[in-house]
Computed example of a mutant assay.
Amino acid sequence: MDVDLRKLRYFVAVAERLHFGRAAEALHIAQPVLSRQIRVLEEELKAQLFVRNRRATELTSAGEQLLADARPLLAASEALRRRVGRAARGRDVFTVGFMPGLIVTSAVQALRERHAGLTVEVVRTTWDDQAETIHDGRVDIGYVRLPIDQRGLRIRPLLTEPRVAVLPTGHRLAGKDLIGIADLADEHLLQDPDAVPEWRDLATELRRPAARRPGPVFHAVEEKLEHVAQGHGVIVLPLSVATFYTRPGVTYVPIADIPPNQVCLAWDGTRRSPLIGEFAAIATDLRGRADGDRRSGRLAR
């Protein structure tokens, strides 16, 4: 029996919330209907997906496996729908995703000049959705910042850049020329700890309270900076992002002992679009020229 994508969507909604009532509300269906559909899915798969009692709803091992497999399957389905819809409307569109601090203008213009009838669009992504937008078809290729879940993606390294700590101007470390990641171990990190694995691993190793009770996590760069300025915590950013978002109330200090941020091109590994390969080649070539110009400039001085 084929797996029903609608039932998979229902399952993911429950699995992500671990609450049938909240999932039903998000899906705009009645809770009894949702419960019935999940039971039917369990019967079709011949596996129990959830353990429910009065206190909690939990995933079984089969449920955890289905969640891992369902997300990319649903994303691929959405990507198919988007691409077929664009083709049906007769639109020849290529979309590039980019993370804050990265400038993609030259590569986008170069592709547009090569294909007069092609519409090249750009989409600003975030730490949370930079891979998701590729999987679900919102973008054809993305400039991503590692680390990301690379399953199902092709990755091409593009550039690296140093990372800096973003601190309130009155912070005890403000004004220093360099700091180490250990200096931040007791700080509230106002971003996903997976974005700064060196901080996460150190805080866990030292059993700092920050590792057990992290501060609130914010998503937009502007929102993070506002909370840093108010003294609610700190963040770690690539240098280009910090430079682009310079503002009063915060200061930036280089972190000496962590690797640089890696910027890559990423695209769906199952796609064979010539435009994806062409854009990747353009972006890589432009990056190589920029590096060459920078080296030549240093030698000239």
Rank of each mutant, 00 (worst) to 15 (best):
A229Q: 03
R208G: 05
E25I: 11
R151N: 15
A87H: 12
D257P: 04
L80E: 13
D136Q: 04
R36A: 13
V196W: 03
A116D: 10
N53P: 01
L178P: 03
A242S: 06
Y245Q: 02
L275K: 04
L111N: 13
V51E: 04
C264Y: 15
D291C: 04
G90H: 06
E161M: 11
H171T: 01
I258N: 08
A256Q: 10
R39V: 14
V122Q: 13
L158R: 00
Y245D: 03
A68C: 02
R71W: 07
H28M: 10
V236I: 15
V51P: 01
R298L: 15
L239Y: 08
D268S: 10
V228S: 05
F11D: 02
H28W: 08
S61R: 12
R124V: 05
L167V: 09
P238V: 08
P193G: 04
E25R: 15
L225F: 11
L49R: 04
K176G: 01
R83T: 03
Q31I: 12
P168T: 08
H232A: 09
R208E: 03
G180A: 07
V263F: 08
V166F: 00
I282P: 00
L74K: 14
L299K: 11
D128K: 10
L184N: 09
L111P: 10
V51I: 08
C264N: 12
A283C: 11
L66W: 03
V96S: 00
I255V: 12
R112Q: 14
A174M: 06
P209E: 06
F50V: 10
T125Y: 01
N53D: 15
P216S: 06
L146K: 08
Q262V: 14
D140R: 05
T119L: 11
H188W: 15
R39F: 07
P209S: 07
L299C: 09
V108S: 08
G90I: 10
P197V: 00
T204C: 01
E198W: 07
A23Q: 15
L237C: 00
D186V: 08
T284F: 09
V139Q: 11
R271L: 11
R200H: 10
M99I: 12
T57G: 08
I235E: 05
A210F: 11
R91L: 14
V164N: 01
V120S: 09
P260F: 12
A182W: 09
N261C: 13
G292V: 14
A13K: 12
G170A: 11
T133V: 14
L173H: 04
G292T: 14
V164W: 00
G21N: 07
P147N: 11
A56R: 13
L67F: 03
A281I: 03
H232C: 02
D285L: 07
V122F: 00
T119R: 08
A210N: 06
R54K: 07
Y245L: 03
M99L: 12
Q48P: 11
H115V: 07
R301A: 15
L41M: 09
D201S: 11
Y245G: 00
